[in-house]
Design a protein around this nucleic acid. Structure first.
Lengths: 213, 213
DNA sequence: GTCTATATGCTGATAGAC
DNA sequence: GTCTATCAGCATATAGAC
């Protein structure tokens, strides 16, 4: 069973994640987090050394999913499968880790002043390996000679946007909350633009949301 | 000639734009802005009622360019020309109004708590009109039946990213500062993905950066 | 491990001399 | 129109009882 310590830390991180995503690091008061978690403020400080330490815990929680998302680039031999799976994984992160994604985005926007050097290095390594893989596929004539850096930036941006700018997307679509079919439609559109845009020959695989896991 | 009042207000807004983009609204101290502008802090308050009023002035400065960018959707009859021009205009905004773009993005990320209802309504109207235009082109068989909302989200995200996540882009590309050719390459890639992805027949027009204005 | 009360420092904003 | 000195309020963080 989870110790009381673990249970409380988890509750605090989860709540902090929501509040930091909503209002950003600087504008967030530790009392906001405490109130929302149903705890007195001092309790936060019993489990976390400082507001910044809590923020870093939230921030680091998204690193592992982001690193994992790159695995199709190592696993797949085929650019179509790799790109499909990567886009799908990235949209899934925007859906399943929406708040942490937003905290991460805000951090990156301001030059990542709180992100650990280790996390940064890992993310950079994975990005570079994946871009190298794209370069190889291009050299092998398996996709068009697009700029692999810019291709990555477009994939990052278009998938992240469903977490980062969720408010805007809800406004424009008139939805109250994004549904599974919305994320599927997003995945399909982004996948379509990328595959057709890079002249990747469509194989026998299905649309992302109908494909087997 | 510009009055001393106008000149100072402009200097303060320009400086504030940089600082707000760097550190965000809440984390920015008015003294940071004053120091960077070479003025005593009280001078800021002589020209602007409050930190928030100054922030709103910065925020509103990007609205007009953003609204203007939609004009190709009204001007052009041809989806190819409209999409090319819109993407080009959006990348140009990310380049020429990088700081204000970033401030705007941060504001949208947190649900636009400071944006005026008027600006919001105008932006929404333009977005909806443009999406309606896409829908018409699709109905007329001039482009593939993609989801026009998601297409817009991808265009917004992929063009904005060059302002919002400039730090990340510099890290990954190893550049010190983005050059004209980088923005051109970005425009070309995004345009390619969108046009090929939507089965828009490429006409006689050139790549964005070689096309006549 | 929990929580109340409080100290400490910082920042937005202003008063008032020049 | 400019600037120094200062205030008032608020948020982080802790002391210490339970």
């Amino acid at each position: 069973m989870a110790s009381i310590r673990e249970r409380n830390k988890r509750l605090i991180i989860k709540t902090a994640c929501q509040v930091f995503a909503d209002t950003g690091f600087a504008a967030t008061k530790t009392s906001d987090i405490a109130d929302k978690a149903g705890l007195p403020k001092a309790n936060i400080y019993y489990y976390f050394k400082s507001k910044e330490a809590l923020y870093r815990a939230v921030l680091e929680s998204i690193i592992e999913p982001l690193l994992q998302a790159y695995s199709p680039f190592h696993r797949e031999e085929d650019p179509e499968l790799a790109l499909r799976a990567y886009i799908k994984a990235k949209v899934r992160i925007s859906r399943e880790h929406a708040d942490a994604s937003k905290v991460f985005a805000s951090e990156i926007m301001h030059g990542a002043p709180h992100l650990s050097a280790d996390s940064l290095a890992q993310l950079k390594t994975e990005a570079e390996r994946s871009i190298e893989r794209l370069r190889q596929w291009i050299a092998d004539g398996r996709m068009a000679a697009v700029d692999p850096h810019h291709l990555m930036f477009t994939i990052w941006a278009s998938t992240q946007t469903y977490a980062d700018f969720d408010w805007q997307i809800l406004e424009v679509t008139g939805r109250k909350k994004l549904q599974a079919k919305d994320y599927d439609a997003a995945t399909d559109l982004i996948t379509r633009l990328v595959l057709k845009g890079c002249d990747v020959q469509p194989g026998s695989t299905q649309d992302s949301h109908t494909a087997p896991a």
